[in-house]
């Protein structure tokens, strides 16, 4: 399995990840190498195996419906790149 530079650019866009032009080929090579590693899994028959998402077979615990958090805006926005009037600012969103 090998990925092309074009594939890498598509994935990078999906992940909103800027990558330098000169690095695209090397990512393509590394990812192809990883995919080769992964094809080894196809050696194993897993037809009747249940996928395992968690190490523990446990149920989700439920939280009582109680408000426990107070307004902490000042502290949270002190670390924000750009805020005004209590809002986070971003380049114009076009709908």
């Amino acid at each position: 399995m090998s990925l092309t530079a074009d594939d890498v650019n598509k994935i990078a866009h999906l992940a909103r990840l800027g990558i330098d032009k000169q690095d695209v080929e090397s990512y393509a090579k590394d990812l192809s190498g990883m995919l080769d590693l992964m094809t080894r899994m196809s050696e194993l028959n897993t037809d009747n195996v249940e996928p395992m998402a968690h190490p523990m077979d446990q149920a989700q615990r439920l939280r009582p419906d109680v408000v426990t958090e107070q307004n902490n805006r000042e502290k949270f926005q002190a670390i924000a790149p750009q805020v005004e009037a209590g809002l986070y600012l971003v380049p114009k969103v076009i709908e």
Partner: peptide, 23 residues
């Protein structure tokens, strides 16, 4: 690059903000 952490300089639009901040 919206609520905390690194934000790129002068993003021209939203996609640019995301791709460059993350890149």
């Amino acid at each position: 690059g919206v609520r905390y952490g690194y934000r790129c300089e002068n993003p021209v639009d939203l996609t640019d903000l995301y791709t460059r901040s993350r890149g």
